[in-house]
Computed example of a mutant assay.
Amino acid sequence: MNYLDINGIKEIIPHRHPFLLLDYVEDYKPGEYCTAYKCVSYREDFFKGHFEEKPVMPGVLTIEALAQAGAVAILSQEENKGKIAFFGKIDKCKFKGQVVPGDKLKLETKIIKVKGPVGVGEAIASVDGKVVASAELTFMIG
Rank of each mutant, 00 (worst) to 15 (best):
G59V: 07
G82T: 11
A71Y: 01
I84D: 06
A65S: 14
I74G: 02
E53Q: 15
A69K: 01
K83L: 14
F86E: 05
A65L: 02
K54N: 11
F86R: 08
S76G: 07
V72L: 05
A69D: 04
V60T: 15
Q77Y: 03
G59A: 10
L61W: 04
G59N: 07
I74K: 04
Q77G: 05
P58M: 09
M57C: 12
I63S: 00
E53I: 15
E64R: 06
V60N: 13
E53Y: 14
I84S: 02
K54M: 12
P55Q: 09
N80S: 09
A85D: 02
K89P: 01
I74E: 08
Q68E: 14
E79T: 13
F86A: 03
L75W: 03
Q77W: 03
Q68Y: 03
G70R: 00
A85S: 12
K89T: 06
L75V: 08
P55L: 12
F87I: 10
E79G: 12
A71D: 07
I63E: 00
V72C: 06
K81W: 02
A65K: 00
E64K: 05
V72Y: 03
A85N: 05
Q68H: 09
L66S: 10
G82Y: 10
Q77R: 13
K81L: 12
K89E: 13
I90W: 04
V56W: 12
M57D: 09
Q77S: 11
P58A: 05
V72S: 03
L75K: 03
F87D: 11
P58H: 10
L75Q: 08
I74Q: 04
L75A: 04
